[in-house]
Amino acid sequence: MNLKNVKKHLRVYKIFFVAFLKSRLIYKTDFVLGVLSQTIHLVFSLAFLTLIFTQVESIQGWGFNEILLLVGFGGLILNLHHIFLFALYTFGEDKIVTGRFDRFLVRPLNPLFQVYASYVSDNNISKLLVNIALIVYAGQRVDATIFTFENLLYGSLATVSGVLVLAGIFLGFATTAFWTGRSKAVFWLFFNVSDFRKYPFGIYALPIQLMLVTVIPIAFASFFPVTFFLEREQWRIWQYLSLVAGPIFFLVSYKFWSHGVSNYSSTGS
């Protein structure tokens, strides 16, 4: 991948992106209802958190606003990932079983890039905005000073790394579709596991904590970075690991993906 190649991919992405948005104009109801349902989903999950906090004042030393910050920051990373990189969700059903993946292999572009470029999950935009609002709201109410230059720098790097962590998880899950022909069902499992990011890491038993830093490493994309903002010293190593976790997990998954691509034989229609 030299610079010229990157530039070409970016230029193609822009064309794909605009083409996708144009095609979306035909399905305005889908977009409006999609945004509405995502917003309702987020509002209801906040209502649920509020109900939880009618029972306690803090969960393992995490107060309501701190949990909100955790939900907001983790959600921001999740939504950023989903908006641009969600296409892998239907990879098995849409690309493998139908044999459409063939097309991607004959074009002079990276096949994974083409999968990503084929779909923009635009209905996540409202959630992204609400999550940013949550960070701003909760950030002003927690004890620590959140809005500093140091946090901005760390937060930006952690966001990029976090998006890559999620991309790595998605890529790993979707690659299994080369053998099974399906991908949606395994993602249902992920969607439920991804809720683990909303609560303090310390409440889980050790096997679950291990899972959240290895097989499904979402703790790097929510909990550890937030402890940095809240100045919790005991997580120091994990906070810095969060900055490199993304590239590492993504590269591992990409290796797995390449293995899958080389094993791919078309459905032959």
Binding site: Q55, S58, I59, Q60, A185, W188, L189, V193, Y199, I208
Partner: peptide, 24 residues
């Protein structure tokens, strides 16, 4: 997979409520 998702859900809220029980 849906069964597994359900088990994951139970596991999550088992620990959440356990933590709530310990804090309040």
């Amino acid at each position: 997979m849906l069964l597994a998702s359900s088990i994951v859900f139970l596991l999550l809220y088992y620990f959440v409520w356990l933590a709530i029980d310990q804090s309040g």
